[in-house]
Amino acid sequence: MKNSELVSKYMRDSRLPHIWCPGCGHGIIMHSIIRAIENLGLDKDKVTIVSGIGCSSRAPGYMDFNTLHTTHGRALAFATGIKLAKPDMKVIVISGDGDASAIGGNHLIHAARRNIGITTIVFNNNIYGMTGGQYSPTTPHGDFGTTAPYGNIDRPFDIANLAAAAGATYAARTTAFHATQMTNYIQKAIAHEGFSLVEAISVCPTYYGRKNKKGSAVAMMNFLKESFVDVKAAERMTPEQLQGKFLMGEFKHNTQLPEYSAEYQKIVDRLRKE
């Protein structure tokens, strides 16, 4: 399907243009989500997209599904209610790095632990964009933000592996540069029965880029291209070659563990039979 057709089929075009800055990576990720949904042939009425607060969390408003823009950090908790109430619904959460791993970090690890059938797409731009460039849990050590004027002394989260360690049964990371691979991962994540997470590395030229002298949006996209290495390729690389590189790829894919709302339904069915 051509891009223009994809847009008219899945976007609320009266809501466009979006609020994102020129050069922002978020549009690419949103595109990958609707491309993945198209590839999976999902019924739009049976898809719910939930978000929290932040730049990325404005995405659902532009997308023609059941869409819910919630409070900061709580998207997964709202989404858990919807998924448990309606297990047949495909529930996708769109969240930022701050929304998902700072204020919403507790909901992230518990949704992963339950293995509830929600797909979380983390739009990770390493900064709080909407409030103007404060450091987030994924801002690299030593980088700058408006609240880290002397350099960030925090150590960053690895969100994909955090989710995997907490019990997510599908966890992957890719970048806005690797758009085709991103569509592929998101598609696999949505098709996955249990809790799935795709950490989508975005770029924020307006705040993170300027604060850290990363150059233009194009330069930042080139950085993604140059510095992310697939986990499988990394196995064959020397420590020297891996210096300054980041890992992407599929970190976990386990289809054996039971999905939460299906497990609950078993209790309902058993009690109703008795």
């Binding site: 709202f78 209610g81 109430a85 619904m89």
Partner: peptide, 9 residues
């Protein structure tokens, strides 16, 4: 939050 989600569903 989950209770609100249940109501929305």
């Amino acid at each position: 939050a989950a209770a609100i989600g249940g109501s929305i569903a």
